[in-house]
Design a protein around this nucleic acid. Structure first.
Lengths: 277, 277
DNA sequence: CTAATAGTGTCTATTAGACAGTATGTT
DNA sequence: AACATACTGTCTAATAGACACTATTAG
């Protein structure tokens, strides 16, 4: 390999056709919270986080599950547009909340050729789109357990198959928040095990200082439902009065009520846009 | 489409040129905090944040300042390795703290061809490497002013030139933290105006819940110096007792002192690794 | 002595956590 | 009436903000 003494020298040598180029993909971690049916008519349905996976029907990684994703057309679209195009074909939905997560670029993450993937988190309210999913796509409920030796176990369940991912986290230089992730069993195709974990952690963090949860909520919701969504994302119980204090400025009461639940009805709320200053 | 019996067979047949390809670069926002000389011998030197820029001496954007960066060699290196290689040629330093910031992929961000850039934040203690900089590179002190109409003005000063960037922020869907950024005057080459702002905001956020500042500190430092660095990053004054409460678990007292400052000497501290659980 | 920063004690205000209580629908 | 959740009041603990005070060096 020729070595360059400066960036300028490197660039001077540059010729589009001379230098190797590469392919890029956009991969999407589509996250939602689903209701688990309850046997007791009185009880509220329990919530679980779930993500959408697609079964690969061709090589490489034939028959493995992976995140929806597709190759970027560099002439025509941005990565986010690419992600939206893929989501459209998978879920038939537009106007989904999308946020860039991380760019994965391991040298051998794709056995075909060098492929760099920019991953996106997408958030939806699953209950408002159940019937529009591509038949090859499937929702998996998530159970995430953090072992104390920095190993994270993630179980994915679609009621037919159970996938068990196991990922090792190693702390990096002077950060307290940056880890190297390594999948111990590579259950999903490519490096998608890592994208799943990174996405869930990002969501967990951002829930506390942003309003992104509301992208996973229907237009009208009860505070109980909202609290359950927070609880399932944060993976811990919250106390009612504290929760209501925290979200009281983010929602507005409506004059609608949710009734017929076998217990006291509750007021339906809407998301309230923050005043911008 | 032909079907394959194994991944090996598939890969043998696979043609890389089947998909459109593109070029990638890694661009680095190298941030440090510098001492501003004081006329009064008694006073401590004031601190300013500064970033490293390089003057382009070729087209496109000839004679404009830009972030150090370079094209990825897709056969041989990851984006982070590419960033480290570029940093090595610019600052002659290895072992710098690097963190992926964002992937920029506007269709026309580079007039030559489609180029997607993954940007990195790099943090250093500038005072321990002043003499090893590439002569074409130059440190610029930063002054950042947030106007109330979501316009951010950034002044970059290298004691010879003054650059004045102006960027408009527009809030996106249900987030409270995600903005679209648009440069109003494109002072730096490519879309580097935006990378600068995004990097500074990221640093400001992460300072509160991570230990990244210590990547910008010398091995031994006084709490006064550390506080000044926090203050210049957060762009506000902190109260001494509160600051000391917050960082007391992150540092260890040494038996060294800093003397000869025209006032009471202060104890030198070191960074203390957190216990991992 | 003086200027300037180093460093600490303590009061107050704000926020988070905990618990117990009341309210109100469905069956 | 009983169940289950909705919703609120209030005490306590923990944390953040503010201010005032003492300490210590070079010149």
């Amino acid at each position: 390999m020729k070595t360059y003494k400066s960036e300028e020298e490197f660039l001077k040598d540059y010729d589009v056709t001379m230098f190797d180029q590469l392919s890029m993909t956009a991969d999407i971690l589509l996250i939602s919270v689903s209701d688990q049916e309850q046997n007791n008519y009185r009880k509220n349905s329990k919530k679980m986080m779930s993500i959408l996976l697609v079964k690969r029907d061709d090589y490489p990684y034939k028959d493995k599950w992976c995140l929806p994703g597709g190759f970027l057309n560099p002439k025509k679209e941005t990565l986010e547009e690419c992600a939206r195009r893929v989501l459209k074909t998978e879920t038939n939905l537009s106007n989904i909340y999308l946020e860039q997560l991380y760019t994965y670029d391991g040298l051998n993450r794709d056995p075909r050729t060098r492929v760099v993937s920019t991953s996106y988190i997408a958030l939806v309210d699953k209950n408002s789109l159940t019937d529009m999913i591509n038949p090859k796509a499937c929702w998996f409920d998530i159970t995430l357990i953090e072992e104390k030796d920095n190993i994270v176990n993630i179980t994915l369940d679609n009621n037919i198959e159970l996938l068990h991912l196991s990922i090792k986290k190693t702390l990096r230089e002077k950060t307290t928040d940056r880890y190297s992730f390594k999948s111990l069993n590579n259950v999903l195709a490519f490096d998608h095990d890592l994208i799943v974990l990174a996405g869930l952690e990002r969501l967990k963090n951002k829930v506390n200082y942003t309003d992104i949860v509301f992208n996973m909520m229907p237009e009208y919701f009860t505070l109980g439902q909202l609290q359950q969504v927070y609880e399932v994302i944060l993976n811990k119980k919250l106390l009612d009065p504290a929760f209501r204090r925290i979200i009281k400025d983010k929602v507005v009461k409506t004059n609608k009520m949710k009734t017929g639940e076998g217990h006291r009805p509750s007021v339906l709320f809407k998301y309230k846009e923050p005043n911008n200053n």
